[in-house]
């Protein structure tokens, strides 16, 4: 069995009397692109800062490449590229000076890639960082995280501040990085930002992992909101009885419901009537968070099932 690149067991982090992480269990396998999704304040940055040895755990354990971050020290961090969620750099220096400095801290590793990466993201290295927009500062962060081609990338909200074109370019960089065998751990508060690159996704809520699944699995279990409008008022009971259907209700001639899994049974039942209009919309992640929070079918109980299945 391979050692997980990132592993936490019962990780707890308190800030004074506030509990930021309440027993976090996480495993990221080598070569994975792993999405770490949760609303703001759920504990994403805290987890990441523990992994980077910027914070020390209150209880539980965390390892990166099999070593605790504090024990691994500089040699462990040499293998990691880190993009902070709220990137702050000394204001007076230029982008190049800052990147050269960070390369020097790595014994010069990555210096030769600064120009290529800056060009790729259209980053002007000669301007003082103070004069850069939020998006351009974020590019400085992206360049320093990727330039030394680390084995593990820990990226906290990496796409925030980047415009859609650069987000696309960034996700392409993530794919290339994964293709050369590196592991990528990236957080976001929006599933959309990671779903096109992530192999698996963990959902964090109030300091705990409430769900771990592939993006597709998550989507399927999150379900779709379906509205079917019939020529006549439909009978509710047969639809409500379907295993894949929840929250079914009829309003005028329209059936509203939440669909989980395959739509086959629902469509075949609907096809017995005359359907005049239909919509099916993937639940967005905020809905999923609410569902998870309520302990619904995708919630804590479902996580236990996932755990047992593994």
């Amino acid at each position: 069995m391979t050692t997980p690149v990132i592993r936490t067991r019962g990780l707890v982090k308190d800030y004074g009397r506030t509990r930021a992480l309440a027993g976090l269990d996480l495993e990221v396998e080598p070569g994975e692109v792993f999405g770490f999704i949760g609303p703001n304040g759920a504990g994403k940055s805290t987890t990441i800062r523990v992994l980077m040895d910027l914070l020390r755990p209150t209880a539980g354990e965390a390892t990166v490449f099999g070593v605790a971050p504090a024990a691994g020290g500089p040699s462990l961090r040499a293998r990691i590229g880190y993009l902070p969620g709220d990137l702050a750099t000394p204001a007076r220096v230029t982008g190049r000076e800052q990147l050269e400095h960070l390369a020097a801290l790595r014994g010069g590793r990555g210096r030769e890639r600064i120009d290529a990466l800056a060009e790729r993201f259209a980053l002007d290295l000669t301007r003082p960082i103070r004069a850069l927009s939020r998006g351009n500062r974020q590019k400085v962060g992206v360049v320093q995280a990727f330039m030394h081609e680390p084995e593990l990338l820990v990226l906290d909200e990496p796409t925030s501040g980047l415009d859609p074109l650069l987000q696309h370019e960034f996700l392409q960089l993530v794919r290339e990085t994964a293709a050369r065998g590196a592991t990528v751990f990236m957080s976001s508060h929006v599933l959309r930002e990671v779903e096109s690159v992530a192999d698996r996704v963990a959902v964090i809520r109030e300091g705990r992992i409430v769900d771990v699944d592939s993006v597709r699995g998550l989507r399927e279990r999150a379900g779709q909101r379906v509205a079917l409008t019939f020529a006549e008022v439909p009978e509710l009971a047969p639809f409500a009885a379907l295993e894949s259907v929840r929250d079914a209700r009829v309003q005028d001639t329209t059936l509203h419901c939440l669909l989980h899994g395959e739509p086959d049974a629902l469509l075949k039942l609907a096809a017995r009537h005359r359907v005049v209009h239909w919509t099916a919309r993937d639940l967005d992640l905020e809905d999923l968070f609410l569902d998870v929070y309520r302990g619904g079918p995708n919630g804590v109980n479902a996580v236990r099932e996932v755990d047992h299945a593994r």
Partner: peptide, 20 residues
């Protein structure tokens, strides 16, 4: 001061020990 303005974070995430 650098910790408060956030600019220490990238240095500490680099392979340099805090004591160093």
């Amino acid at each position: 001061g650098q910790e408060e303005d956030g600019s220490l974070e990238l240095d500490l995430a680099a392979p340099i020990a805090r004591g160093r």
